[in-house]
Design a protein around this nucleic acid. Structure first.
Lengths: 212, 212, 212, 212
DNA sequence: CATGAATGAGCTTTCATTCAT
DNA sequence: TATGAATGAAAGCTCATTCAT
């Protein structure tokens, strides 16, 4: 996980390095936009280049391949997200509050950057190869953060101790992810962020009648 | 071709017709296998044909296009699943028990037919176009079934009445779906079916310390 | 030329032989119609079969190949045309009158059977291979008839003797053929048959001011 | 691709641009050669590319499709022909002399560029679609030039005034076209250009005995 | 760094033809 | 004779990637 973490951090640094002239980020954002609109497989590298205002060949000065473009969107956005979350949660002590903040930030990011949301929820899922890589790197970090918060909650007496924290983390992620996909596909007919609270309510209390 | 297509579609429903000539199902299963192994975009129609033991052109006597092949795997398997679930749940009256059976069948199907599991969890998610279609047809049926069971549970006093049943259904689907994806990507290091119970436990009681 | 003549005659006889059940001619006419509508290369043998009301394979019981279908339309129609012309001209003695009758029959045939006209004027011209075959067989017969009439006219003092009759025959064919093509492409906005007289007037007198 | 296509089209007109990079013309000439040899439908785009010394894909940088290649050969050659004829005829005043020069140039072009001759006389005639396009654009210009010359001759007293000039133009074109087709199919056993004079003689005087 | 013309491998799909029934 | 399901060769076109300028 350490190694993977570094890769993500590096891509954030690369952004800063190369953003002197802004091309790296311009291409990345153009790619997110084009991929979100046409889908990864239908999108042409030439489309991305045009949207970024550079020549086709220039894309290859900043990215190794079309696939790298997709991977980089993910690393870039996920890196930023995890960094922000970490900063935001530092001051908090209550596990439930942390989860609330976490879920809110997750949804808020997607809601603010719809192109990236589409790429995350749809385009990134297209291959076992990518999904494996995805789930062993950043997703692992994401789940690890959730898990640690849940374990904290267990130690502080907020959550049931007999629960498998890793399992609960996946469970929560699954629920959040489904809401996000649903929102992406429903064409924004409702707000995503306001679903964070209900999701957590269900996560905390379950559906049983005798509690909550 | 239209005529043939219709015949093919009809044969999904009529078992007798299917067996008159096993090519439709043979090609479908071959496609699932090949798509699962190589991924939809890397798979060649010729691979599918070879795996099914027919000529390339024959694929097009039964399916309109490569894309139709993917869609048909989904419709075929999902149709069978929903039918079976409906039959299985008919005799049950307890909402919780229904959900248990439901989740078990969901996981059992994927565990038995790994090729189809991979296609479901990974390959089918590759485009907004498909996802939209997916979520407005069979997934809608799936969620509707869950929703009805939950509403039943609310009426019978098992579940909290102030919950939005549709929302809870999505929440549960998300959790189940995440476990399934995880299992597919983890190369069967654990059993999927045995996760049904823990998922439902969490769904019923939540993580809060004061219940369960 | 004898040999070629026989081939043409035979195809007429074949028609009669096989027309007991009418399939040979039905397929031929269906082919002319389909080729006229879609063009030879776009037309599918299956289209022809459907238009003729037979199964795909049946076409191959009557014709060797798709190409044979095209060739046969030509042989069949051209054979009938030459036969009719020969019969019609037998009684006439005046060379000019013969040419008039000839040109009229040429145009009348095309005007009556538009599908065949299109196949003749457009579809048959698509390959050097066919054109060579065409011009060394039936076209040669056609030109030979014209040539003999012109030579007759030269002997009878109607036409200039210093003219090369073969050359004049080609010249006339070219003019007639152009009018026919023009008519086919102009979508019948004018009558073709009524152009026979003006063409012959020009052929007889030329454009010079000092005669006619 | 649009941009490139435009550049390519423009270069038909601008000699300088064409020579900036000879690929457009090289591919065009290669196509004429390959189409003449194998026929349009048998010719593969790969053959054209090889003959032009470029990669397969390069053909598509200059031409929209295989069909566009055929159309372009026609437009290119016909454009050049009409331009040259216009220039050549400017100095002449006698209508007959103009027709002589016109016919000579027509035949000379075909005789010099046999590949193009074959494409013109055979390959271009393969479809109603093309023929219609053909006869409503450049052929119309061609016929219009002939018609104007004939009308000029009528005004100057050289030609019969009661003739329909448009009709006479088609008549002459038909005769010239037939000679050209004949020459193409006869494998150069005679000179084409030397037929111009006899054709015009017949066009001027007709076949009647009492003049010439 | 930037360009964009050129490359060429690769693949879906069509359809004339065959042949078991 | 008639059928029509099955065949499988064949090719137009795309587009990620490279590289000379």
């Amino acid at each position: 996980m350490q190694t993977k973490r570094k890769a993500a951090v590096r891509s954030v640094e690369l952004t800063e390095e190369k953003s002197r002239n802004g091309k790296f980020e311009a291409i990345l954002r153009a790619a997110a936009q084009v991929f979100a609109q046409s889908g990864y497989f239908n999108a042409k590298v030439a489309d991305v280049a045009r949207a970024a205002g550079v020549a086709d060949g220039t894309v290859y000065l900043y990215f190794k391949s079309k696939d790298d473009l997709l991977t980089s969107i993910f690393n870039w956005a996920m890196g930023q997200f995890l960094e922000r979350v970490r900063a935001e949660l530092t001051g908090l002590s209550d596990a439930k509050e942390k989860l609330r903040r976490f879920a809110n930030m997750h949804f808020a990011l997607l809601e603010e950057e719809r192109d990236i949301a589409i790429v995350f929820q749809i385009e990134l899922r297209h291959s076992t190869k990518f999904m494996e890589q995805f789930s062993t790197t950043h997703l692992a970090s994401y789940l690890q953060m959730l898990r640690e918060i849940i374990e904290e909650g267990q130690r502080s007496g907020s959550f049931r101790t007999q629960l498998n924290a890793k399992f609960a983390a996946k469970f929560l992620f699954g629920a959040l992810d489904e809401m996000a996909t649903n929102w992406v596909l429903s064409h924004r007919q409702h707000s995503l962020t306001e679903l964070a609270e209900p999701v957590l309510d269900l996560f905390f209390h379950g559906v049983n009648a005798n509690h909550a």
